[in-house]
């Protein structure tokens, strides 16, 4: 995946270079400048993520999501999904394990959707670009949407009634 991505980046850069050398130089300068601008918040996010992940290991998540009734499960799913951050290639295999352990689809939905949509750990970066107010509003709305998705999933899989 990442190889295809960088192949695209390389091809576009080369095309840009052939068409206009100055513009390409400028594009790379913009890229470096933007990367440097966000670097402090990025490092802050890395520190936050490393500490939070230590306190919420996969085992804890599997145990807590698997052992509770449906509504508490959804609430815990929303909670862990919101406070943690993990790439899809870790999150979905984990969700697969949870499914095998008999965790409800609606709990998985609460967990994976809030993992992707709600970002408490990405707060430093989001705030840098959009300001604190908008960041808090967007994440609050996302949390509500995630809860609705979880309930709809529960309905679709017959887990609610």
């Amino acid at each position: 995946m990442i190889k295809i991505f960088y192949a695209i980046v390389l091809i576009l850069s080369l095309v840009s270079l052939i068409v206009n050398k100055n513009k390409t130089e400028q594009a790379y300068k913009i890229a470096i400048q933007k990367l440097l601008n966000i670097l402090p918040s990025l490092l802050l996010m890395v520190i936050l993520v490393s500490v939070v992940l230590y306190f919420t290991p996969d085992k804890t998540i599997v145990n807590l999501l698997g052992k509770n009734n449906q509504f508490l499960g959804v609430v815990l799913g929303l909670f862990f999904g919101s406070i943690t951050l993990m790439p899809g290639f870790i999150a979905f295999p984990l969700a697969g394990i949870l499914l095998e352990k008999g965790v409800l689809y609606m709990v998985l939905s609460a967990f994976t959707s809030s993992l992707m949509l709600v970002g408490i750990l990405t707060y430093p970066i989001e705030k840098d670009y959009f300001g604190a107010k908008v960041t808090i509003m967007r994440n609050s709305i996302s949390l509500v949407i995630t809860a609705i998705i979880a309930l709809a999933t529960g309905l679709a899989f017959g887990e609610l009634f």
Binding site: S16, T24, A31, K34, L35, V46, V49, S50, V51, L53
Partner: peptide
């Protein structure tokens, strides 16, 4: 915790330079 930080940082380092190059090309 330091292992978590390194894992996450290496994930970011893989993606971010490419993303920002595309953003640079986009802006130009």
């Amino acid at each position: 915790i330091s292992k978590n930080a390194l894992d996450f940082l290496s994930n970011i380092i893989k993606v971010f330079p490419g993303v920002f190059i595309l953003i640079g090309l986009f802006e130009v």
